[in-house]
Amino acid sequence: MEVFLAWQWFHRLGSPRWFYQKTGAWLPWLALASAVLLATGAVWGLGFAPEDAKQGNSYRIIYIHVPAAFLALAGYYIMAVGGAIGLIWKMKLSFAVMRAAAPIGAVLTFIALFTGALWGKPTWGTYWVWDARITSMLILLFLYIGVIALGRAFAREQVADKACALLALVGTVNIPIIYKSVDWWFTLHQPATIRLTKASSIDPSMFYPLLTMIAGFYCFYAWTLIAHTRVLLLQREWRTQWVREALVEEK
């Protein structure tokens, strides 16, 4: 019986109408949570956290760089899981989530790369270093762009959905292999002058604002993803009764 109820719930969650109606109420709360968390984290991290002994103030960019990099990778998995659910259970909603997650993830990856480059200038004296993590991020960006470009190339949305889902799954299988091989490549070519202080432990006074920022980024991600998915659903289902009703209500 419980299994049945869970299944029914899962099934209902897959209904675009149900999703649209439920998530409408969540959006303001998510927006509020991300605004509060991001503002707190930013003020705390940029204004009150102590200076780094070696890097001075330039380290503070981690308050954007690290959460963005976190979510860029997590976003790819969210996209792939959405695609997998879509392929297996043929759910329209999860395809929409997958398609919505792609550009968001690509932007986050770009932010992580951009802030990483900015951080590189004072730290390494150059904007671009072929560091293992930066290189992996760059390849992740290419993977995202591949999914987005493939989705745009098809005239029919249903075909595009399935093709993107398959590509995202193939990418998911490959990401760990790519990351490992890039790591190995970097240890092979690592110049002596570039050493990341990865192992050094971070002080709690710097760490808590970072945690706040990560939580804020997660909320912001959820808010963007849901909002984007809602727009996609309206576009895709515009012929149906529930969209007409929903739009009339919102007027």
Partner: peptide, 13 residues
């Protein structure tokens, strides 16, 4: 066409 989807039950792609 409207009738097919009215219930919003058309979950599947």
């Amino acid at each position: 066409a409207g009738g097919v989807f009215v219930g919003g039950e058309d979950v599947h792609a």
